[in-house]
Design a protein around this nucleic acid. Structure first.
Lengths: 184, 184
DNA sequence: CGTGTCATGTAATCAGTTACATGATTCA
DNA sequence: TGAATCATGTAACTGATTACATGACACG
């Protein structure tokens, strides 16, 4: 059976990219991978501390002028080993919870106008996020794909774009159908 | 701030469709809405019991021959009222966690062949699920969309199809790119 | 002078899964 | 005779968020 506590491996994976602080990790989760992963400070900081006692990471303290100290975590060989072991395991899709689709699905209890409004708000947030994707792709095209890590990062981004485009397409279809229903 | 414990409202929404047992609910979650919601017995049964004490649902016991009794829950007006209140609230996308994309993203630590295998397995599970979607759509086309509830259910299904199609398309692109990388 | 950013941390709490128990019937 | 389906339930656990605390600096 596959291991739980996937958070650990996400943090190890990010530390494998480059040494980071908990704050850095939070930023990456919020901006880059937020369409497929979420993580709170209350989970990040204790997990990083646990890496130290488990020997999966080491820390260095970076003093900064006018800013608080940064505690930067570096992955160790045994941290990388544990990450690779997890990557080789099979996985299960758990904890899938899309609040939008639930609200949409039970929307017959509200007036059609509310359903339409819900979809329009959803479409708006998808479009906003697409803007970020476009910028990221432009930046990657400038830098080029130097190695497999870059390629995988780019492809993960590409899935985000594909999925968002299909959801935007769905919004159009759904709005058409709901407006049609409104007329009758 | 939006309410947590969305499970409650999913169960209320399902009971609004028709009276159901905990077992029925689990089946619907496993087969119909599993692409955007998951729920365990350990959460379903206590939640249903709480509905009774909160007056959001009432139960009837159905005796069956050769099978255990079924405890069927019926939503009450105040249950429907609480559901509508929740539907009118704004929502936040929380707890987004796609284990596949994490394994894919950090795959540079494994040989390219492993990355390709991961995507192929993923593609296979997507295709399997598409089969279920095709059957469901065929059934709906036979029955027709009688009301808005049916329409919303159909549209929710449609998003599942759109998203899965875009992910399948992505698989092709990803496999192409990885095979290209393999050659170099 | 208030808000936002940088930066780390913990205690309390909750949400939700897992593992277990029970037990009859049906099917291969 | 063993597995699968039907059906309900609970206790133990854990995973993860929320809310709080601290404090300096930059910006308008």
């Amino acid at each position: 059976m596959p291991k739980k506590n996937v958070s650990r491996y996400v943090l190890l994976g990010l530390l494998d990219w480059r040494p980071m602080s908990g704050y850095d990790i939070k930023k990456i989760v919020e901006f880059s991978i937020r369409d497929f992963w979420s993580e709170s400070y209350g989970n990040i900081y204790p997990t990083l501390q646990k890496f130290l006692t488990d020997g999966l990471a080491e820390k260095t303290v970076e003093r900064q002028e006018g800013k608080p100290d940064r505690i930067v975590y570096h992955i160790t060989p045994s941290g990388r080993k544990e990450l690779v072991e997890w990557l080789n395991e099979s996985y299960e899709q758990r904890r899938i919870r899309d609040e939008f689709l639930v609200k949409f699905l039970f929307g017959h209890l509200l007036p059609v106008e509310s359903n339409i409004h819900l979809v329009e708000t959803y479409r708006h947030s998808l479009e906003e996020r697409m803007e970020w994707y476009r910028k990221s792709v432009a930046q990657i095209k400038k830098q080029g794909l130097k190695n497999r890590k870059d390629l995988l990062e780019y492809l993960a981004l590409l899935q985000g774009i594909f999925v968002r485009e299909s959801k935007l397409h769905w919004c159009e279809e759904a709005l058409k159908a709901l407006q049609e229903h409104q007329k009758d």
